[in-house]
Write a protein that binds this DNA or RNA. Sequence first.
RNA 1: UGGGGCGUGGCCAAGUGGCUAAGGCGCGGGACUUUGGAUCCCGUAUUCGGAGGUUCGAAUCCUCCCGCCCCAACCA
Length: 558
Amino acid sequence: MSDEPRETPSNFIQDIIREHNASGRFGGNVITRFPPEPNGYLHIGHAEAISIDFGMAQEFGGRCHLRFDDTNPTKESQEYVDAIIDTVRWLGYDWGPHLYYASDYFEQLYAWAVQLVKAGKAYVDDLTPEQMSEYRGTLTEPGRESPYRNRSVEENLDLLHRMRVGEFDDGTRTLRAKIDMASGNINLRDPVMYRIRKATHQRTGDAWCIYPMYDWAHGQSDSIEGVTHSICTLEYEDHRPLYDWYLDQLGVHHPQQIEFARLNVSHTVTSKRKLLELVEQELVSGWDDPRMPTLVGLRRRGYTPEAIRDFCHRVGVAKAAKVVDIAFLEHCLREDLNRRAERRMAVLRPLKLVIENYPEGQVEALEAVNNPEDPAAGTRKVPFSRVLYIDVDDFRDPAPPKYFRLSPGVEVRLRYAYIVKCTDVERDSSGQVTTVRCTYDPDSRGGDSRGRKVKGTIHWVSASHSIPAEVRLYDHLFTVPKPDDVDEWRSILNPNSLEVVRGARLEPALAGVPPGSIFQFERQGYFCVDLRESTPARLILNRTVGLRDTWAKIEGKG
RNA sequence: UGGGGCGUGGCCAAGUGGCUAAGGCGCGGGACUUUGGAUCCCGUAUUCGGAGGUUCGAAUCCUCCCGCCCCAACCA
């Protein structure tokens, strides 16, 4: 990977692995896995998990598997499998030949279930879901044992077999582990191992009508694959005793489960339910809407895999719940884009600027640097002529204090072109400025101020040479840092999270750039050609993230 | 009233009994600048949830207290 750990602090998972390596517990092997359920799109929170799973393996010379936890056919689909594979790959991770599915292990899991039944450690229960809930007890009261708990091994074996061959209806019976109905840990109150679901599975078809629960499948899948460190989020901490119990009963290879706090990013939601709600209620345009915290959304927004990986890396790994400021994500993005994005000029809201003393019909090709951070990016020619467009934001009459841009009587530099002085302004009947008139200094070609102090430099495009584009300006989806804390979270949706600017004008070098290309529009921000809707005939660009805007801060303070 | 975790500046996060409590983000100030970008400086916790205790010495050990998160799907 190109982005090696930089100012990344050590973390407790590394400590644990080092201890294992020192004691020889896993013979120095470090095998991890990223185990998504194919029932939704991956989001920024998953990116950290992926980063840790693959990162730890990489750091210790091991490997990481991609395994789908596809144990619930009623919620999963091949579409999600494909999307997840595509996204993890896009992020830059490689699992080599180690692509697995929990469903690959169904037969083995069943054999193990039979083994537990024979050992008197599992039984078929006839309780209905409602009854089972009643029998489970509460957080503070112990549960009660099911009346079916003490069936004979023979009867359990027979019933389990008949569950498998489809003799019983959905929900009528389950196979349960016989552990402890009085445990303070509810996961140990005879957890369900198999439930009946007469559903077609995307990979196993109709071969099965009983499907393993997560707990019954996960640890054993890890074990089969030889996983050494099963890294997961904190909510599974309570499940570890069960993870350990199953593996111990079976007497098979026993990985170490390690839990860390999941990553949350401010101004976003990542719960599946809320993300789905945003999509279904058309509050966003889809899972890949550039405002979504999904990885497909971030990708379409213009985020690079490098920036996301760097972010996950730098955020750190710990066990304390965290909500990282989205400003930090944006910082990592800008840092990456600053060094790789070529510069271009684009005028989002055009204001005509006429240079009175510039010869009518003359055109000059002025040289502009493509990327000041990368000399190898070279230069390009930008056409300059008598009639230009500048951004409406770059002209003010009167000029407010500390405003360095154009205003009547004031000189400003046109980036890579000439120094111009505003001599006149034309307005429409409502007083709106329609045209700014200037004179230019022919001796300042290229923007050379020749000892003079010119405070401002503004960007421009030649009116007749520029090309049109639609530019979509994105902002945070939510107006508050922690949308999850607000009950009616839709009331805190940012009404300005998307602003469509239709009449933008771009320098001609931008003609024909392919979808996905990223540029910095000088003085404004980073923009990418939309992956989904942009066409050569109708260019659409997304603002990935703005540049740091010191002027906005000054002005904001009044 | 059960079980499992977690509490270091606005947000992350090092620190694992001993120099003045790393670093990043953010924020404030300055330098530089043909992007008010980038870069570069400087500043930003007398104190580690609180109270006691152990110790020559504690964010680090002990005790009690407070706060926050997760768990009662035939979801993962």
